[in-house]
């Protein structure tokens, strides 16, 4: 898995470096490529929420609020983990 990901990632980086101007910087393809990471991450959050109960939904909403307020990854993780832990303990 690691070797395949490494080879593919290098191929992408090197292709950009060598093909340079041939790669469109505007138009539908460039817009789709720019939007792809965000869409994938959202799809990933969606898959992790597929079997979520109200505890997971609540902790997710809290983590999202912290992410929007702080834009800080560790802070978001800490709040998310603390929230789900507290909800599972108490309820």
């Amino acid at each position: 898995m690691i070797a395949a990901l490494a080879a593919g990632t290098f191929a992408i980086r090197f292709a950009g470096a060598r093909l340079g101007q041939a790669i469109p910087t505007e138009g539908p393809m460039a817009r789709a490529l720019t939007a792809l990471p965000g869409c994938l991450i959202v799809a990933l959050v969606a898959t992790s929420m597929l079997n979520a109960g109200w505890r997971e939904a609540t902790a997710g909403a809290l983590a999202l609020a912290v992410a929007v307020a702080t834009r800080n990854l560790p802070a978001t993780m800490i709040v998310g983990i603390a929230a789900i832990w507290a909800l599972r303990q108490g309820l």
Binding site: M1, L5, L19, Q21, T34, P37, L40
Partner: peptide, 26 residues
């Protein structure tokens, strides 16, 4: 393996635009 690698590579496609935008450096 296939699904894991595919997800990772799809996320990395944007690197194509990043290296292409500074292709003169290489």
């Amino acid at each position: 393996i296939a699904a894991s690698v595919f997800a990772g590579l799809a996320l990395n496609l944007r690197l194509l635009l990043i290296t292409a935008s500074i292709h003169d450096v290489y």
